[in-house]
Amino acid sequence: MNDNIVIRVEGLTKQFGNFVAVNHISFDVSQGEIFGFLGANGAGKTTAMRMLCGLSVPTSGHATVAGYDVERQPELVKRNIGYMSQKFALYDDLTVTENLRLFGGIYRMSRRDIKLKTRQLLTELNLTNERNAMVRSLPLGWKQKLAFSLAIFHEPKIVFLDEPTGGVDPITRRQFWEMIYRAADRGITVFVTTHYMDEAEYCDRVSIMVDGHIKALDTPAMLKQMFNAPTMYDVFLALARQATRG
């Protein structure tokens, strides 16, 4: 047993009628790791992620996240993770500080903590002058960075990022990854999906799902060696071409 394992998945399966969306997947993720969760559309990534976040009950198999069982203790799982997706991250019609207060409240942070961390975060992001601005009025790049900071505002053990950089300009996309590095260096585990294959290179380990199965899981360097491929894009193509659904 390794005490540093914060996500443990064993034979996790989800079936909708006859359709096996996630088929007996198993893997571990260690504390502070940046874990890339890749796959073609329809491979089962979203379904697997929803189970890990305690939002969907597995048909069979087990998973513990931050030490809690996703099936029996979903509320404790939710309290110990952060989540950000491209589709939902912030309330557009609340101000920057209102968003922070709302999320801090949801995660049961004390008023004092919320106040303290809000000041700290606004300074870090250079957003102090914009603190009373509606989130809607911020440039997209700022929003994405704010959304990530918000997802880890309550210092979760793990943060789930679902295509966090879609549609973002190239410079902001790189700054965003530098924020991910810093969070990982602080010990926060990062579980991330992306369709940008250069971003797969930034992960410590990468898993690739095809038709509900995990077909490959290793460091980017090892995967490239195994598939005799120059880039992660080629690794992905080699694997995803085997897919029959999607």
Binding site: G39, A40, Q86, G167, H195, M197, L237, A240, R241
Partner: peptide
């Protein structure tokens, strides 16, 4: 943006 959110193979 016909390929936004679409995986590399489908793109």
């Amino acid at each position: 943006e016909p390929t936004t959110g679409v995986d590399p193979v489908s793109r």
